[in-house]
Design a protein around this nucleic acid. Structure first.
Length: 424
RNA sequence: GGUGGGGUACCGAAGCGGCCAAACGGGGCAGACUGUAAAUCUGCUGGCAGACGCCUACGUAGGUUCGAAUCCUACCCCCACCA
């Protein structure tokens, strides 16, 4: 199978070095992508490079996921307008460990022929002596060339933020990673987002200067939603792969809400569905868009990969109940399970005594609205539902008669945002 | 260093003594329509009360005035031109 063609067909290819296609067709190649451990979890924006490694492995090559435990200590200036905050060493290692686990859901580490591999550049960067580094690596870099890099130029032009020596050196370290991976594992390919092009080619040059083999680079396009919005952000913030940060239910909902204009493109990028399936789904979007078949498939595929069959089933079940039928007839156990992934708060039972508590106050206290005023605005606008029925005026109070099964209050804001209040 | 222009809510941008919690546009949220889509239309978009009202907010700190985003002084920052 021609991997470059596969990339191109799926919209994963922004650019590649001249000899990359030939090298990939000539035999097994080991390639890597670096993941930046600024946070302890990857988010959906990282899925493009992850899928890059998945396709690499499926084509019979060996993928390496490099977790930047060392470079995370430094910070890449690419695409950043300001000097980054530095991570301390313990945090960087902790984050690297979290990312390692998430990647394991996508890649096969036990293959006999072409297993995936994890690497952490802290292994070599941590040991690196400054003088040795300058002598062996630094001498191969021309400051003139480094200064010409777009990412560096932009920061130099901005008198305000400038660029520190530390960040300026980032491209040396990333290049050095490539060299180390080549030495240790015979890695001859680096992939990454298109903003990484400069760093990747610098690495290729370094390996060549140090007497290594010809290496190659492939970069992915930057991903946007069709509205021009940032991909992977919702009102709730970043969509993470970590179920403790973004529940499987919300993760599933994120994909289900993909626009018609984006959904086929996303299916191509984020799932392994083949052309016949894609064509059928594209047809479904055109013919009967209200069924959302493509969105459902997208959500199911990605959620299953990241959160497993269990996570997917819970998310689908919760979605059916929350957007399908009514809350009536649900047992206490059902409610508990369905809302397990939905934001929830506790409330003292005594708050409902006597006249009860004003709904707006409850909402603000539970974090459903930023303030009481905002909660009242939402109610006035008709956007708040208590146990499935619309709150009609701002004076609504919640009393002892409201709780379902004497334990639960279900508050909904807008069409999609649910909150569960459990009485203690 | 000099001269001129400017710093207004999430962003852009009006206002230039009271009618300013601040026009307008964007963004965001909610409603209607739909398909948990897009487009469109409507409403809302500082806080506490929600009846009046009170508090905080137009770079920072003072001042003038019954009253300041608006006038004065100092300071900080940005931009343009000159050196």
């Amino acid at each position: 199978m021609d991997m470059i063609d596969e990339f191109r067909r799926r919209g994963l290819l922004a650019d590649a070095t001249e000899h990359a296609p030939a090298a990939l067709n000539a035999g097994q190649v080991t390639g890597y992508i670096g993941f930046d451990p600024t946070a302890s979890s990857l988010h959906v924006g990282s899925l493009v490079p992850i899928m890059g490694l998945v396709h690499l492995q499926r084509a019979g090559h060996c993928p390496i996921a490099l977790v930047g435990g060392g470079t995370g200590l430094i910070g890449d200036p690419s695409g950043k307008a300001q000097e980054r905050l530095l991570l301390d060493r313990a945090r960087a290692e902790e984050n690297a460990e979290g990312i390692r686990k998430q990647l394991a859901a996508f890649l096969d580490f036990d293959s006999r022929t072409n297993p995936a591999r994890m690497a952490n550049n802290l292994e070599w960067l941590g040991e690196l002596g400054f003088v040795d580094f300058l002598r062996d690596i630094g001498k191969h870099f021309s400051v003139n060339a480094m200064l010409r890099k777009e990412s560096v130029r932009r920061r130099l032009a901005d008198e305000e933020s400038g660029i520190s020596f530390t960040e300026f050196s980032y491209q040396l370290l990333q290049s050095y990673d490539f060299w180390e991976l080549n030495r240790r594992y015979g890695c001859t390919l680096q992939m990454g987002g298109s903003d990484q092009w400069g760093n990747i080619t610098a690495g290729i040059d370094l390996v060549r200067r140090l007497g290594g083999p010809r290496c190659h680079g492939i970069v992915f396009p930057l991903l946007t939603a069709s509205g021009g919005a940032k991909f992977g952000k919702t009102e709730e913030g970043t969509v993470w792969l970590d179920p403790d940060r973004t529940s499987p239910y919300r993760f599933y909902q994120f994909w289900l809400n993909a626009e018609d204009a984006d959904v086929i493109r996303y299916l191509r990028l984020f799932t392994l569905l083949g052309e016949p399936d894609l064509a059928a789904l594209e047809h479904a979007v055109a013919e009967s868009p209200h069924r959302r078949d493509a969105q459902r498939r997208l959500a199911a595929e990605v959620t299953r990969t990241v959160h497993g069959t269990d996570g997917l089933e819970r998310a689908e079940r919760a979605s059916r109940v929350l957007f399908g039928g009514s809350l009536e007839g649900l047992g206490a156990a059902d409610i508990e399970e369905i809302f397990a992934d939905v934001p929830s708060t506790g409330l003292a039972r005594s708050a409902l005594d006597g006249p009860g508590i004003e709904l707006a106050v409850l909402m603000a206290d539970a974090g459903m609205a930023a303030s009481r005023s905002e909660a009242r605005r939402l109610i006035r606008g008709g956007g708040v539902y208590l146990n499935g029925s619309r709150a009609t005026d701002t004076g609504v109070r919640v009393g002892a008669a409201h709780p379902l099964h004497e334990r639960f209050l279900v508050v909904r804001v807008g069409k999609k945002r649910y909150f569960l209040v459990e009485l203690d």
